[in-house]
Computed example of a mutant assay.
Amino acid sequence: MIQQINPFARGYYGFEIRRVAVISYDDRHPQTFVPLHPTQHHLPDDQMALHACIFNEGYALVTEHQVIPGDLDVSCSGSGTILAVFYSIYGKDVEGALIHLGDSQTREFAQEVVRTLTFETGFYSRCWEISTAHITDEAGRFLCELADIATPTAFLFVAFRIPYSPAIGIKLIATPWTDINLQQVEGTTATDLRAEHRAKGVPEELIDVLHLAGQADVRMLVLDADASILEGLPVIEEEA
């Protein structure tokens, strides 16, 4: 099954916080936002804000009370004043592109925003409820049989019944099911795990659903005939 975008993927990941100088240099042009040159990363915010600077498209250098090497001086064609210091928050979207999410006036607040947006497995994980229309009847029976026995841990998922409901729950283990994480936690890869599932007789359509969920760091997955169809995930149409 070929997927351009994982339908289970949500939100942002791979967050970065970048300190940038907000520079005013010409009343006819908007302010510009650039980071400090690495040689001045040690400067605290109060030695940047309201201080004169030189800059180019890649970095800025505070000139007030600072000694600027000649090669860096000639590399900067602009000059102005740092009006403020911002902490810009970036995150990767579901397609892997790094997106500017917003700015904060303090590093602490930016870190709190990132903490709020971050899904941490073991603390705050993704739980999904989707329709059983995404798996075959055979796969549904397979899950029911697994739920009635002790699912082998090598599966890296556990099926369980939900009392007073025909729905079946699945707890995925060692997520996300990416090569990097699986290698660190289980000494395997996503490809090898898929092959292991095939070897153990897991139906192919169920493997596809589980691996998409696992890649997106889904921790709990509930399959229910009354649940909604997940847009972007194939619906299985079986002959009556």
Rank of each mutant, 00 (worst) to 15 (best):
D148A: 15
D148S: 14
P234W: 01
V158Q: 15
M1K: 13
G232V: 08
T153L: 06
I168S: 01
G11F: 05
R18D: 11
E196W: 10
E145L: 11
V85Q: 09
A154D: 10
Q40D: 00
P38Q: 08
I229S: 04
L36H: 04
L83K: 10
I130K: 04
A227K: 10
S125K: 05
Q215E: 15
Y25T: 03
S131K: 11
D103E: 14
L72C: 00
T178G: 15
A9I: 01
Q215Y: 10
Y87P: 04
L221V: 04
R10V: 06
A139L: 01
I236H: 06
T32A: 08
Q184D: 11
A240I: 07
R107D: 15
G140T: 02
C144K: 13
G187C: 06
V94K: 11
A190H: 08
G122I: 05
I168M: 01
L230F: 05
P35T: 07
V20N: 09
I23A: 04
N56F: 06
G70P: 02
T121S: 12
L98E: 11
I149R: 15
A9S: 12
L50D: 13
H41E: 02
Y13C: 10
P7F: 06
H65F: 09
E204S: 14
Y12H: 12
A139M: 04
K200E: 13
E16M: 13
E145P: 03
D27A: 13
D45Q: 08
P38D: 04
F155S: 08
T188G: 07
E186H: 07
I149F: 10
L61A: 01
E120F: 08
A216Q: 03
L230W: 03
G70L: 10
I236V: 15
P166D: 06
M1P: 00
L36R: 00
L143C: 09
I17Y: 03
E237G: 06
V114H: 07
N6F: 09
L223V: 05
Q215G: 04
A84K: 15
F55M: 00
Q40E: 04
L221A: 02
V202T: 14
F33V: 07
